[in-house]
Design a protein around this nucleic acid. Sequence first.
DNA 1: TGTAATCTTTACCAAGCGGTCAAATTTTTT
DNA 2: AAAAAATTTGACCGCTTGGTAAAGATTACA
Lengths: 224, 224
Amino acid sequence: MFDFYLMEKRQRALTLPRAAQTKRRTRIQLEKEEVILEAALEVFANHGFRGATIDQIAEQAGMSKPNLLYYFPTKEAIHRLLIDQILDTWLDPLREIDETGEPLVEIKSYIRRKLEMARDYPRESRLFANEILQGAPRIQDELNDLKNLVDEKAKVFKKWMDQGRMRKIDPYHMIFSIWSTTQHYADFDVQVQAVLGKKANGDGRFEDAARYLDQLFVHGLKAD
Amino acid sequence: MFDFYLMEKRQRALTLPRAAQTKRRTRIQLEKEEVILEAALEVFANHGFRGATIDQIAEQAGMSKPNLLYYFPTKEAIHRLLIDQILDTWLDPLREIDETGEPLVEIKSYIRRKLEMARDYPRESRLFANEILQGAPRIQDELNDLKNLVDEKAKVFKKWMDQGRMRKIDPYHMIFSIWSTTQHYADFDVQVQAVLGKKANGDGRFEDAARYLDQLFVHGLKAD
DNA sequence: TGTAATCTTTACCAAGCGGTCAAATTTTTT
DNA sequence: AAAAAATTTGACCGCTTGGTAAAGATTACA
């Protein structure tokens, strides 16, 4: 999952943290790196990259700032690693869309999975949203991989449309609409809860959202 | 449009900028305040509140930092004013939905207006998104007004549904889906353009989006 | 158990930050 | 044109921030 030597190869780790100069990964390193990433996720998601401070992350992780910097060379290195992990798992549901399946069933379960991710991993979604919102300065390469995957799946949708198995619409914008409607419940949760008021109790809003999105997309996309 | 005395009443201007101590608003004040707000919009939209510095805003506005602080007491005061202005114009399209109109026509034109705003005022959208994403720490009051407006319009949709003039769905989540799909083109523009590649030339993506969203929502929401 | 490797802490630094102050300059008013 | 009011500037302050250095404490291994 995590490997400094890998990261070093990838780029930019001009300064190596001292923990990486060790002969091999120790038990403590594995544990602390995990703790730090979890803490950083919390802090980055709530304050953005610039708004987050190493001190905050260190406190959340229950250690001192220099101690944290023993494991990661810079604040940016932590952020970068998180983004990479997130983007990867974030795209899993899209990868799983099965060309040989039934179009509307596949799309419905894609939406359901995306909504579950928004419910279960809101911090990851917000961290990513933060990055895109500010022009994605640190993830140009990753956006390229993203494009390739979307291109591939857009072809699948196009084929289904040509076969008359779903409405002829723009597959790219269809994907955008699925991303935006589902991630909205993670990224804009404060607003959603403020608007729903008491109606937002527990995870009820996610069940309501699932029902609504199902109706919207099934009727919106099914062949006439 | 802008009034320090109003802002002062509202709250927090503990320190008044010296420009506010003037006997009346001068020509120069009106001009410079405008320039500063425009510059601040640009900088806040691209870097978020914490990521933006007064120096950056001042440079964008073509003046020195102390000079800028002659017109506004704090960085937060500028931000607050922008947010208030934005939220107000942002909700105009929703206010304009006409209870006496034809449901699908009203909803279609609401979507079109929202999409036009995403196209024409992307910085405003991103500034607002930034604020919500980070828990809306500075706009609790405004979220309340928002809730009231949405409640009111939800009732209208409900009435239309009871009259059998549109599909029975959850009106709140319908509004969320319109917000998210349209604002996506402003907030996540970097990602949209990266995915569309060459296909994203000019404003073509907005026209494609308009066509797609029209199909999605019309078929998704029309009575069977 | 002793020693080498690893981990943690204390003290620190330089740069960046939001914001102030008083003096100098420009604009408006008389 | 002089006086008053308003605007601009440069120098500065205290705090926060990302990150470092070196010594001390702990752990792993022979």
